[in-house]
Design a protein around this nucleic acid. Sequence first.
DNA 1: ACATTTACTTAACAGTGTTAACTATACGCC
DNA 2: GGCGTATAGTTAACACTGTTAAGTAAATGT
Lengths: 206, 206
Amino acid sequence: MGVRERRARQKRYLRQEILDAASELFVREGFENVSMRRIADKIEYSPTTIYLYFKDKAELLEQVCAEAFSRLVQRLTKIDEQPGEPLEKMQRGLLAYIQFGLENPHHYRATFMMPIPEGMREEKLQQADSPGMQAFDFLRRCVYDGIAAGKLKVKDPELASQTVWAGIHGVTSLLITHEKFPWVGREKVAKSMVETLIDGLGGARA
Amino acid sequence: MGVRERRARQKRYLRQEILDAASELFVREGFENVSMRRIADKIEYSPTTIYLYFKDKAELLEQVCAEAFSRLVQRLTKIDEQPGEPLEKMQRGLLAYIQFGLENPHHYRATFMMPIPEGMREEKLQQADSPGMQAFDFLRRCVYDGIAAGKLKVKDPELASQTVWAGIHGVTSLLITHEKFPWVGREKVAKSMVETLIDGLGGARA
DNA sequence: ACATTTACTTAACAGTGTTAACTATACGCC
DNA sequence: GGCGTATAGTTAACACTGTTAAGTAAATGT
């Protein structure tokens, strides 16, 4: 009677194989060069097979990104669990966020820098469980914790969170798209942004 | 003997007409929906005619963006010429930059948020006269002026400039791509970022 | 053993950027 | 005025893209 299960397992397996193939093409060749046909070639199936497992290209790449971002969320929760001053945790978290973006430029681009195809703007990102939003939530918790500990002096915590997000997104995205710009140093700019944000929000750093 | 000139004038005219058509499609329909054929339809020429005036689609859209960004540079120089405290000028400039991005999301996206097609990364953006770089130069001058006036306390002015750029780029790009995110308020976040950056860089604001 | 569901493929549509080859017109010159 | 040439624009085609509809073959349930 395990037939049904075996079939389901095989389906899951192929689905994952598609995801893996897409992910590898994604990181190697970049977003624009991932075509359904190329993914299909890689797994040696016909292009249309993919549509039996994913609604369309957008959904497939969304899943690929979700996988990647869940790794970021893992890192962030690990940082959160470790002991330390709220502001120091925040600093480490923000740097981890930026570092993740730089290590996974294509995934970061796809989730945060691509135009959302008109109509699912509300649904997709506002879902609190979307990996992008989980990352933002971590960051927001950092701000709230900093305020609770009296280490951050801001009137509007939500505004502060969004400002911080915008800040670290700024470095990340700019370093990604303008790789060849004469940066004073990638890590340097990242660190400078994090410090500037915390200082600017009245942070009492060590 | 003005024949040659008349012909040249006609060429310039058609070139501008292509630019205008592309620009209009650009702002109305967005980047991804501007196709060479659609531009051609609009000006009632064959698609290939465009290639007599522009090397390829990238160059055409680059010119479109250059036109738009020159307007930003105009605004910024106007701000620069007006009297006022360095930090206040800076604040107005940064807000103008953000506002420009929000008013011209597609142009901003094309110049600062698109992957640069591998090979012309150095040439294109590093050219000091590119409109993107002119805008950045303004911003950098603001930082240097702020330091010179003793209103900004930073060790590395270049690092500070890049941090500021990343910051305002962050708000701008995030507000563009995630329009439907429950922002605490678009202008509010923009203002908060500008203030946070200046404060974070040891700015002595009024 | 037969009918049905399942998994997958082939063929096709409508679109993309771009190139090569062709055509018609306007020009300079004798 | 007529002729050859440069100029400006066109048509047709290539090699792609995402996606859908229709068809096929094998595994399954009865």
